[in-house]
């Protein structure tokens, strides 16, 4: 039987694109779930850049002030 390559190729295309999109779509879902789970249950401030960046600047300033105060106290004694 003569095989029509174009018809075959068309079927390949449908299957292939479906598979690629399905795979990547599931991957997107998995990534979103992963991000949520980690954010909720394992949010580890030290290993997360997000945590570092979102840290309050006010907090930072207070900490610096406290350190300076401690150093001054230490030198006095």
């Amino acid at each position: 039987m003569e095989v029509n390559l174009v018809v075959e190729a068309f079927k390949f295309m449908i299957l292939g694109m479906l598979a690629v999109f399905a795979f990547l779509y599931l991957l997107v879902l998995a990534m979103k779930v992963e991000a949520k789970v980690i954010e909720r249950y394992f949010s580890d401030k030290k290993s997360s850049f997000a945590a570092e960046e979102s840290e309050d600047e006010e907090e930072e300033r207070r900490r610096v002030a406290a350190i300076i105060a401690a150093v001054i106290e230490y030198r006095k004694s």
């Binding site: 190729a9 295309m13 997107v28 979103k32």
Partner: peptide
Amino acid sequence: PKTAMLGGAAQFGIFGSLLGAAALS
């Protein structure tokens, strides 16, 4: 994550040219 879908769309290059190669032959 949703930008992953763009990496999927570009694979049309593979299957589109499969169709092209088949048509040429």
